[in-house]
Design a protein around this nucleic acid. Structure first.
Length: 680
RNA sequence: GCCGGCGUGGCGCAAUUGGUAGCGCACCCGACUUGUAAUCGGGCGGUUCGCGGUUCAAGUCCGCGCGUCGGCUCCA
């Protein structure tokens, strides 16, 4: 997952531009125009004609046309959150006086500030900091902008070593494109002239100050709602070699209601967490005894896997793939040939030594597929040769990154390697991308964009520049032909070739990297792969790597969150649960279940001693798509009553019809939950 | 890997300043035979993640390890 929850950001309102005369403030112009400065959509800054955001209370040097920016617009929210970060930093330095400041930018849905405290913050500290922040907000401190020279700043900030470093990196005045600073860092020092923001209390007394580009809210009072979320560690300037700072994350909103809505949204997202649902729905677990990042699938999770894989196999079969199988372990020399060792030794489990050789668990399937290609002479008539395998690989993910099913140490890739001629490459990539998107849609993901990862001038990228260009352009063309949005990712390529990755948005707007398609000229070279062309000459094939689910495990994790555990009927571990009103209908329902089983429907009869209401509750919590309920009346009429996931019901449906409806619905692979509307 | 939090029956939680573990769900048994989200009663189940230490006494304090959570870094 890359992005967080969608923010409930309001669209910027179109407002007429206002004139701010030289020597006057934006506030004066806004007040004269009767524009609200205080409400949940009140204006907090303005955008000038140079597209810069400016404080309301700083006089303009020259007359200008400005656009009001409301607190609930995207820019307004950033200003709010950045100001909240300042308030938090003030609170922290107040409570923990020897704490040094890092940077404190706004981020999606909130803000953070990095600190170097004498001791790390604890969760308990957050409460105290929040309380102090509330005091600062109530004190209605003014954010007051002050220009300062680099030399003055160095004196004023002599104890703040991180701020001094930023000033040094900022570049000379007039240089508006600092290349050393990322966007977050630039928000502190800007590109040219340095400014300080002084927090002044009602008496005009200076209570706190921070180096900052701004702009800010007029006063701390304009922070209507905030909450500190968590503490974490973060490396200074994002580099593992640097000092580790303590980061505090917070969120801030234009109203208490908006904050509450955001917190509810987080709770909803937490309910979909596949790790939680995996346990609740009895799908999989991670036994400590196995080790970190190693999952076992329980029978219900096993059904999911099987259905997912079966459908994938079928589609691959129809699309000209050939199925192969390779072992989980290999001698070291194979990975030397492929070039993965020593490059990626850190990412592999350490080798086992026996019979005079080092054996590695495979972290990728491609070298073994290459051996299959090379096992005999190949003709151009065989190309494109598409080898497919559900191949289990093992990767030594660092202990801190293992996460549920989405980042594991043992996984099964739906891995495919396609060998084709250079001439075939462009067409093959296009077909492949269509195939991938089409198949993902069948599993219910239907909102995508693409990312094109290319090389930069880093030495890690190997191979001929001309080949990179050719492969990159072929990928780009395939991406453009798909009509999907394409986001560039310079420097993100694998060391052996460029790639396209398919990003999918789930039901609540989060994005996940799904499939990757990579072009590789290197391995064919390293393995000496060749085929005989129509011309009788030997040629080197192009190799395309491609995984569609990424891994089966990860895909199950993503689908679990996408559907919040309420899987489509065709995937659901239990598709039908039959519930008798009283014990007298148990045998009757076993007959109904038998008829369903003949249609290969996964059905259970709840013959336990619970009351019917309890059984309905249990089935509902198990998110079973169809409940079939039968009482004396139904049994007498040879009928059953449906209850769907949404609680709707249809009573007195003849058994034969009910069985057919369910079988048809499952066969349709509809991804929405069945409901009354589906059956008219 | 780094920083911090957490680790109590299958699951979710409780246990005063250290004084040798309780509850709900699930599970098992019994009673009740019920028409759309929890019937009642009884029972089983824990070497409090592991190892070591402090103490008369450790779930509680300390150290190490493992696992996990939140971030950072990483993700062929």
């Amino acid at each position: 997952m890359s992005s967080a929850l969608p923010s409930s950001t309001a669209e910027p309102q179109l407002r007429p531009k206002l004139t701010v005369a030289a020597g006057t403030t934006a506030r004066a112009a806004l007040e004269a125009a009767g524009i609200d400065l205080n409400g949940p959509s009140g204006v907090v800054v303005v955008r000038d004609s140079a597209d810069q955001l400016r404080d309301l209370d700083v006089p303009f040097e020259a007359t200008d046309q400005v656009e009001p920016v409301a607190i609930d617009s995207p820019d307004g929210l950033s200003v709010l959150r950045h100001s909240a970060a300042h308030v938090m930093a003030q609170a922290v330095q107040d409570l923990f006086p020897d704490t040094l400041l890092g940077i404190g930018p706004p981020i999606e849905n909130g803000f953070y500030y990095d600190f170097l405290p004498k001791r790390p913050f604890t969760p308990d500290d957050l409460g105290a900091i929040e309380k102090k922040m509330t005091e600062i907000i109530k004190a209605s401190q003014r954010f007051s902008r002050r220009r300062i020279s680099d030399d003055e700043a160095r004196v004023e900030l002599e104890t703040e070593k991180f701020k001094l470093e930023l000033i040094g990196l900022k570049g000379q005045p007039g240089n508006t494109t600092p290349t050393e600073l990322n966007a977050e860092e630039a928000s502190q020092v800007g590109g040219g002239v340095l400014t300080m923001y002084d927090n002044l209390n009602r008496d005009g007394e200076l209570v706190w100050t921070d180096l900052c580009r701004g702009p800010h809210l007029p006063t701390t009072r304009r922070i209507p709602a905030f909450k500190l979320m968590r503490t974490a560690a973060a490396y200074w300037r994002g580099d593992q070699k640097n000092e580790q700072l303590q980061r505090i994350y917070g969120t801030a909103w234009p109203s208490k209601d908006a904050l509450k809505a955001y917190l509810v949204q987080l709770e909803e997202a937490a309910k979909r967490d596949h790790r939680k649902l995996g346990a609740e729905l009895d799908l999989f677990s991670f036994p400590d005894e196995l080790g970190s990042g190693l999952a076992v699938f329980h029978p219900k999770g096993g059904v999911l896997r099987k259905e997912m894989e079966d459908y994938s196999r079928r589609r691959h079969e129809e699309s000209g793939y050939e199925f192969v199988n390779t072992p989980h372990i290999s001698k070291q020399t194979l990975f030397e040939t492929s070039g993965h060792l020593p490059y990626y030794a850190d990412g592999m489990f350490p080798p086992m030594e026996f019979e005079g050789s080092n054996y590695y668990l495979k972290a990728m399937n491609c070298p073994m597929h290459n051996l299959i290609f090379r096992s005999r002479g190949r003709s151009y008539r065989e190309l494109p040769l598409r080898l497919f395998e559900f191949g289990s690989v093992y990767r030594y993910e660092k202990s801190g990154v293992v996460h549920g099913l989405t980042r594991v140490r043992g996984m099964t890739q739906d891995d495919s390697h396609i060998y084709c001629s250079k001439e075939q490459m462009a067409g093959e990539l296009k077909n492949l991308l269509d195939f991938v998107i089409d198949l993902l849609r069948d599993y219910g993901l239907d909102d995508f964009y693409l990312e094109l990862s290319t090389r930069d001038d880093s030495p890690k990228f190997i191979g001929e520049p001309a080949e990179w260009v050719e492969a990159t352009e072929a990928l780009r063309q395939a991406a453009l032909d798909s009509g999907l949005d394409l986001v560039p990712d310079p420097g993100g390529a694998a060391y052996y070739g460029p790639k396209i990755s398919v990003q999918a948005r789930d039901a609540i707007g989060r994005t996940w990297q799904m499939s990757t398609i990579q072009v590789d000229f290197q391995q064919p070279k390293r393995f000496g792969l060749e085929y005989t062309g129509a011309d009788g000459e030997r040629h080197q094939p192009v190799m395309i790597h491609r995984a569609l689910f990424g891994s089966v495990e990860r895909f199950i994790g993503v689908l679990t969150e996408h559907y919040a555990g309420a899987f489509p009927a065709w995937l659901a571990p239990v598709q039908v649960i039959a519930i008798p009103v009283s014990d007298d209908q148990v045998d009757y329902l076993y007959d109904v279940a038998k008829a369903l089983k003949e249609q290969r429907i996964r059905v259970e009869v709840d013959s336990g001693s619970d009351r019917m209401q309890k059984k309905i509750r249990t089935a509902q919590q198990a998110k079973v798509p169809f409940m079939l309920i039968a009482g004396a009346q139904d049994a007498e009429n040879g009928a059953v009553s449906f209850r769907y996931r949404d609680g709707e019901q249809r009573n007195g449906v003849p058994v034969e019809q009910a069985v057919q409806e369910i079988a048809d619905f499952v066969a349709s692979r509809k991804n929405s939950s069945p409901s009354v509307a589906d059956f008219g």
